[in-house]
Computed example of a mutant assay.
Amino acid sequence: MFHKEGTPSIIIAIIVSAILVGVAFSVPMPIWLHFLLVGLAIFVIIIILQFFRNPKRNTILDDATIVSPVDGKVVVIEKVTENEYFKDERIMISVFMSPINVHVTRYPIGGKVAFSKYHPGKYLVAWHPKASEENERTTVVVEHKNTVQIMYRQIAGALAKRIVNYAVENEEVVQGSDSGFIKFGSRVDVYLPLDANIKVELNQKVRGGESILANF
């Protein structure tokens, strides 16, 4: 299963690969170049398909848990001051996605979208300390039925030049469902209440929609 955001790229990859194979079989050339072109065509298709894959995840709906919105590795767990929406201290968990990770973003909790905003910005490397405030990003806040609000922020990196965000204010959303997509490597920051019970550790690998970041 592939994400709908990948449709144009997949079509282009198929066309490019078909051209390479066509040239390989129609133009006289050394045998090594023939195999090189065919191999390149296969490589292009594999890379694009694996990047835009959208595997089904078994999210266990739970009113007391916050699941990871993306696949990747936990690179930051720290207390920070969140200045855009809450304007107070929060626990921030950052998950870094490499180009080989699934890049679908999923809602960490269910509830109503209280805030959703896109910010144009820079393309610093995703792990840069200022990336969460200066890079291209989207900020989404979901309010749980128990009134707890959880924020997550999609952040573009040096390679990620397009962030897709489906969250619409006042819309009811389901935990673990598709909330967007980030093309190429980047990161997502999740902002939790200070009393949240953190369930992950630094450098731990997590799966979007399944791995529990915290209880509340």
Rank of each mutant, 00 (worst) to 15 (best):
K199N: 12
K122I: 12
F181M: 05
K199H: 14
V148F: 14
A126M: 09
G157V: 03
P193K: 07
T139R: 14
E143K: 15
R137Y: 04
K183D: 03
V140D: 04
I150M: 03
N165T: 07
A214M: 09
E133W: 10
L194Q: 07
L202S: 11
K183R: 15
V164N: 06
E136R: 06
A214R: 12
L213H: 13
H128P: 07
S186P: 09
N170M: 08
N170F: 12
Q154L: 03
L159T: 10
V188F: 15
Y166W: 14
E133V: 15
H144R: 15
E201C: 12
A196K: 14
A196Q: 08
T138D: 07
V168E: 13
V173C: 05
E171G: 07
D195Y: 14
G176T: 09
K161Q: 02
A167K: 02
N170Y: 09
N165E: 09
S179D: 05
D189Q: 05
V140R: 06
V188Q: 01
V206M: 03
G185S: 14
G180A: 10
K205T: 13
Y123H: 12
N203P: 06
Q154H: 10
E210K: 12
A156P: 03
A158H: 05
K122T: 15
V168A: 08
Q149C: 10
E172M: 09
G185H: 07
Q154G: 01
I212K: 10
E169Q: 10
V141D: 01
V206P: 10
I163G: 00
V200C: 03
D189C: 09
I198D: 08
E143M: 13
P129K: 04
L194A: 07
Y152D: 00
N135I: 04
V174W: 08
N146Q: 04
I150G: 02
S211R: 02
Y166Q: 06
Q154Y: 11
H128Q: 10
A158V: 11
K183M: 11
K161D: 00
S132M: 10
E201M: 11
Q154M: 11
Y191M: 06
Q149T: 14
K205H: 15
R207Q: 15
V148P: 11
G209M: 01
T138G: 01
V168H: 10
E134V: 13
V164M: 05
V142S: 00
L194K: 01
L194P: 06
E143Q: 15
R207C: 12
Q175Y: 07
E171F: 09
Y152N: 01
F181V: 01
